[in-house]
């Protein structure tokens, strides 16, 4: 049990490191989305291509977009937390009984 906790902590730390290292090493980049780069390639291959549809709702700016992204993450994390809370509470209860 203790080893498992340690394993999870190490795993999470490594995840954090993998995400942080590029930020520390590459200083001259804004880390834009990979889909933006793909757009550039498309323009290179087919300069005349016109997107034939546009997003119906475009967040007005970076702030609203980050609001929606964090809402998405928060909803997901909430459900995961709820699930784990239920499972952990149940196993504690079973041990007591």
């Amino acid at each position: 049990m203790k080893n498992k906790g340690l394993l999870v902590i190490i795993l999470l730390l490594v995840c954090g490191l993998i995400a942080i290292i590029p930020l520390a090493l590459i200083s001259d980049s804004e880390f834009g989305g990979a889909d933006g780069q793909a757009e550039e390639i498309i323009l290179e291959i087919a300069p005349d291509y016109e997107p034939w549809a546009e997003s119906i709702l475009e967040p007005p700016g970076g702030e609203t977009e980050s609001l929606l992204f964090s809402l998405q993450a928060a909803l997901g994390a909430g459900i995961i937390g709820l699930g784990f809370g239920y499972f952990i509470g149940r196993s504690k209860h079973q041990k007591e009984v």
Binding site: A19, P22, S29, F31, G33, A34, F69, A73
Partner: peptide
């Protein structure tokens, strides 16, 4: 929802 920076300088 997590856009994570990567070694290629993009996310």
């Amino acid at each position: 929802a997590l856009k994570i920076p990567s070694v290629t300088g993009s996310s």
